[in-house]
Amino acid sequence: MMKTAEMLEIFKRHRGDAVVIPGRGGRFWVELSDQPDRDLPLGDPAMGGHASFALGLALAMPEQRVVLFDSEGDVLMGMGALPTIAEKAPANLYHFMLDNGVYATTGGQPVPNAEQMEYEVVAQGCGYPATYAIDNLEDFASQIEEILGQPGPVFVALKIDPEIINEPINARPQWQRKTRNQAVADMQAELGIQPPA
């Protein structure tokens, strides 16, 4: 098991100029990132959609590396996105998935079949050419260079500690520093992307 923030701290050293969609790791990533204009901390627009969003982004800018930190709850809800990613096979997409076994932001209830799921096997079966399963920081640190050093799409299942939130939504600390649309606009400005006319 890894602490999400500790895992992200290691990832940060290998990020390069990648655009990062931190997903459920957003509240930790905004504290760590030193390239916020290349970050898309979208929070949770609608559960299950991060992988498809990352696919769209990767297809739109094939020269730009895109890194997603998905969650197992999102993948379970949107599992049908995996075959599409594998078929389109964007070489610039790196799909990490945080697996804490629970719905951490609703109080920590287990996800379906939490103890037996092997998400990297699912991704492999969907056609991802490279998949990993990592459950400790030492292995993550030793493999991250290899993971990011190969063409995507790569899927990496990461076992992380549940860091459960159980306060009413309106009482939770607001970690997002800008709106979703502002985050997208900042990334477009940073990368020189013109929205289509």
């Binding site: 498809s52 769209g56 739109a60 949107g78």
Partner: peptide
């Protein structure tokens, strides 16, 4: 969500 990503990428 796919369309949102494509649009974000221009």
């Amino acid at each position: 969500s796919t369309a949102a990503g494509l649009a974000a990428g221009g």
